[in-house]
C-alpha cells in the first residue's frame, strides 16, 4: 500500500514536470529567457572568436529592437538597439577569459503582455589572471513578442548598497 502510494506520487510528479516542460506557461517561458541570457553571456574557457560573436548575437536577439538599459557602473543609461546590445555583449564577454553567469531568485509579475522581473545575477570567472566574482540584483522588463516569445525591453541594476 505504501509502495503504491509512493509510485503514484512519483508518477504524478513526473506528469507535472513533463507538462511544464512541453507546455510552458508564460512565467516558465520568461524563466527560460533568463536561463538563455545567462547561458549566452557565459564564456567557456578557450572559446573561439566566431563562437563568441554568435553568442553575443544570440544575447541581442533576446532583446527588443530598442531596449532601455540602465547600468550606471558601466556607464550605460538609455535606449540601445540590437546592434549596440550585440557590441556591448561582445565587449562584456571579451573582458573575461572564462565566465559563468547564473540568475537566481527570480520573481515574475505578469501584466497581460508585459512582465516585470527581479533576480539576482552572479558572474564568476577569470579576468587578467585573477578570479572575479560579482553579484548584482537586476530588474528587467519583458514584453510578449509576435511569436508568443518574451523579449527584454528593459534591463537595470538595482542598487543594494549605496556609498
Amino acid at each position: 500500500m505504501v509502495k503504491k502510494t509512493i509510485y503514484i506520487l512519483l508518477a504524478a510528479l513526473a506528469v507535472v514536470l513533463l507538462v511544464r516542460h512541453f507546455f510552458p506557461g508564460d512565467e516558465q517561458k520568461i524563466r527560460q529567457q533568463f536561463t538563455r541570457l545567462a547561458g549566452y553571456a557565459s564564456r567557456p574557457a578557450g572559446e573561439k572568436t566566431l563562437a563568441g560573436l554568435q553568442r553575443a548575437s544570440a544575447v541581442s536577439r533576446l532583446f527588443m529592437d530598442r531596449a532601455h538599459i540602465d547600468v550606471a557602473e558601466a556607464g550605460l543609461a538609455g535606449e540601445y538597439d540590437r546592434q549596440e546590445i550585440r557590441t556591448l555583449a561582445l565587449m562584456f564577454r571579451n573582458r573575461f577569459a572564462r565566465l559563468s553567469v547564473e540568475c537566481v531568485d527570480l520573481t515574475v509579475s505578469l501584466d497581460r503582455d508585459q512582465a516585470h522581473v527581479t533576480a539576482t545575477c552572479r558572474a564568476v570567472g577569470t579576468a587578467g589572471g585573477e578570479r572575479v566574482r560579482e553579484t548584482r540584483e537586476i530588474r528587467a522588463d519583458l514584453v510578449r513578442g509576435r511569436e508568443d516569445d518574451w523579449l527584454f525591453s528593459g534591463f537595470a541594476f538595482v542598487p543594494v548598497l549605496q556609498r
Binding site: 537566481v104 531568485d105 527570480l106 520573481t107 527581479t118 533576480a119 539576482t120 552572479r122 553579484t135 548584482r136 540584483e137 537586476i138 538595482v158 543594494v160 548598497l161
Partner: peptide, 13 residues
Amino acid sequence: AIRMAGDRVVLLK
C-alpha cells in the same frame, strides 16, 4: 546577511 532579489544569494557585511 543582506537579501538581494531573494535569499538564495545574500551579501555578508
